[in-house]
């Protein structure tokens, strides 16, 4: 078990090195940091001094190794735009994005799975057809449009929910902030979470439905019926569990995607998360933030893959090979 986790983490090292290289290369290819930092008026002596201070006169590999070493210590440099350490900028934004992503995913899972099971079992009922149409809308409607429509309906016309921001937040522990402690915070979360989770939910629903249709045809489900088990035990015990492996895979990838690319939703709702930070940084070529973001997202995907592998392990006994 621990050997399994260890080997997976070891496999992640080359991935992170490659992403680290790209993150590092950003500095060289997207603008010149020295002229960005010095501005237009500077002497040659100032320039040489800064080049030496930043270590830019060192050989390429030394620079790369130094970049990795400082990144490993959580030091990603100073943001050009905000003149603050990138690490603290990200730490400030991370809780907002994670809270939004987790809420959206839980929502997508909690609604998508039952809808998938229902449409898988009752293929031709009116409700099933309705779900399928809704899911088609969910898959094909672009996120920004859905967000704007929700704002129009619930914030502008009905005035039930706030249209932007995170509402009041409370500090927990050292750096974590949460909006869950107040009703206003939760209300602020509802529209962005629906916007972000809609695509996921419809994807999960369609996946669960397709897998259910497949599984319900298998011999072991027929045998379960022949043993007189209740429909409930068959559908939610025997069948659903056998659909979970692909669902877990998609959930994992989607969660990574949500954390990494909630740009649109965060922009539409002015949600103070990492997506919004990235959009603002890209606009002014704030390289340190972009490079740190890249590394962080790579790490998130590596961790999610590990969790997905562990979940496979928990769900399917056939994968628990004795080593």
């Amino acid at each position: 078990m621990f050997g399994f986790i260890g080997s997976r983490l070891l496999q992640a090292v080359p991935v992170l090195l490659v992403v680290g290289f790209i993150a590092f290369a950003l500095f060289d290819y997207v603008g010149d940091p020295v002229s960005i930092l010095l501005g237009q008026d500077h002497t040659e002596a100032q320039r040489v001094a800064l080049v030496q201070q930043l270590g830019l006169d060192q050989p390429f590999f030394v620079q790369y190794a130094r970049f990795l070493w400082t990144a490993l210590h959580g030091n990603f440099g100073i943001s050009y735009r905000l003149a603050q350490p990138v690490s603290s900028l990200i730490a400030e934004r991370l809780p907002a994005t994670l809270e939004l992503a987790i809420t959206a995913s839980v929502l997508a899972f909690a609604i998508g799975v039952p809808m998938g099971v229902y449409t898988g079992i009752h293929r031709n009922t009116l409700l099933s057809r309705l779900f399928m149409i809704v899911s088609l809308v969910g898959v094909s409607l672009p996120t920004f449009l859905l967000g704007i429509l929700l704002i129009l309906l619930f914030a502008v016309w009905l005035g039930w929910l706030p249209s932007f921001g995170r509402g009041p937040v409370v500090h927990l522990g050292g750096w974590w902030t949460t909006g869950f402690t107040s009703w206003a915070g939760i209300r602020s979360l509802i529209l962005p979470a629906i916007t972000l989770g809609m695509f996921q939910m419809t994807l999960i629903m369609r996946l669960v439905r397709a897998e259910m249709l497949e599984v319900l045809r298998t011999d072991y489900i027929k045998f379960a019926r022949a043993r007189g088990l209740t429909n409930r035990a068959i559908n939610f015990g025997h069948a659903l569990k056998n659909t979970l492996v692909p669902v877990i895979t998609i959930m994992g990838l989607q969660f990574g995607g949500i954390v990494a690319f909630s740009l649109v939703t965060e922009t539409v709702f002015q949600w103070p998360g990492m997506g919004l930070l990235l959009v603002q940084s890209v606009a002014v070529a704030d390289i340190p933030v972009m490079s740190a973001y890249l590394l962080l997202i790579a790490l998130v995907f590596v961790l999610i893959n590990l969790v997905v592998d562990l979940l496979y392990y928990a769900v399917d006994p056939r994968l628990r090979v004795r080593r």
Binding site: D219, K222, F223, P317
Partner: peptide, 17 residues
């Protein structure tokens, strides 16, 4: 009425003991 199926490799649910 009990039932025995043809292929024992596919009649048991793989995920339960």
């Amino acid at each position: 009425i009990g039932t025995i199926f043809q292929d024992p490799l596919t009649t048991l649910n793989p995920l339960y003991t």
